Simulated scan of single mutants.
Amino acid sequence: MKILVTVDGSDISSRALKFALKLAKQTATASIAVLHVDAPVFPGVERRIGKEAVESYHADNHEHAFKAARKAVGRSQVTIEEIRAVGDIAETILAVAAKRKVDLLVMGSHGRGAVTGVLLGSVSSKVIAQTAIPVTIVR
């Protein structure tokens, strides 16, 4: 079983990863890929601050998300693969899931920018609406 977990550094995404780890332990052949998608900078920003500054910005955001993910993995015996991407978040999640032919997508109900506990996040909603892959939403 191939499991793709999306993370953004939030507590909810850490809970989603912990859920996927429990699931993987129950399935001897499971593999987990952890994906962080960083939204692109606004048009014109790269021209003003430079390509290296934008790359550094994305690298810092990726590291923040994966630091929390590594902490969630802790001492588990499950090996994870880290995937970094920049682009439209929902579209990139769908593209990576399709390209890797994952069996299950696990994600948090909302990300860092959402109002806690109010509604299913816009990224989660878009992913659910546009994929045939089973999706587990963790709150």
Score class of each variant (00 low, 15 high):
K18R: 08
A20I: 08
A20R: 08
L21Y: 14
L21F: 10
K22N: 13
K22V: 02
L23C: 02
L23H: 01
L23N: 00
A24C: 10
A24V: 07
A24G: 13
A24E: 09
A24W: 03
K25F: 10
K25G: 14
Q26A: 15
Q26R: 13
Q26M: 14
A28V: 14
S31H: 15
S31Q: 15
S31T: 15
I32D: 04
I32G: 02
I32V: 13
V34C: 10
V34W: 10
L35V: 07
H36E: 09
V37E: 07
V37P: 04
A39S: 13
A39T: 09
P40H: 01
V41N: 04
F42A: 10
F42M: 14
G44P: 04
V45M: 01
V45N: 01
E46N: 07
E46S: 03
R47E: 14
R47V: 11
R48M: 09
R48D: 12
I49S: 05
I49L: 06
G50R: 01
K51F: 07
E52G: 01
E52F: 03
A53Y: 04
A53R: 15
A53T: 12
V54I: 14
V54K: 05
E55F: 00
E55I: 01
E55Q: 15
S56L: 10
Y57T: 04
H58Q: 05
A59Y: 09
A59M: 08
A59P: 05
D60Y: 12
D60L: 14
N61W: 11
E63D: 11
A65E: 03
A65M: 07
K67Q: 11
K67C: 00
A68M: 07
A69Q: 07
A69T: 05
R70Y: 05
A72S: 13
V73Q: 09
V73D: 09
V73P: 13
G74N: 01
G74L: 01
R75Q: 10
R75D: 14
S76V: 02
S76K: 00
S76N: 09
T79K: 12
I80Q: 11
I80R: 09
E82N: 02
E82D: 00
I83Y: 11
I83P: 10
I83M: 12
A85P: 13
A85W: 07
A85I: 08
A85D: 09
D88H: 12
D88P: 11
I89R: 09
I89V: 13
A90S: 15
A90Y: 00
E91S: 12
E91F: 04
E91M: 10
T92H: 10
T92R: 06
I93M: 01
I93N: 02
A95I: 00
A95K: 09
A95W: 03
A97D: 04
A98I: 03
A98N: 15
K99F: 00
R100L: 11
R100V: 03
K101W: 05
K101D: 15
K101M: 10
V102L: 04
V102E: 10
D103M: 05
L104E: 03
L105A: 03
L105C: 03
V106L: 07
V106Y: 03
V106S: 00
M107V: 06
M107K: 08
G108R: 06
G111I: 02
G111F: 06
G111A: 01
V115P: 06
V115L: 14
V115F: 15
T116N: 08
T116R: 15
T116L: 05
G117Y: 08
G117K: 01
V118K: 06
L120V: 12
L120S: 05
G121V: 06
G121T: 00
S122L: 01
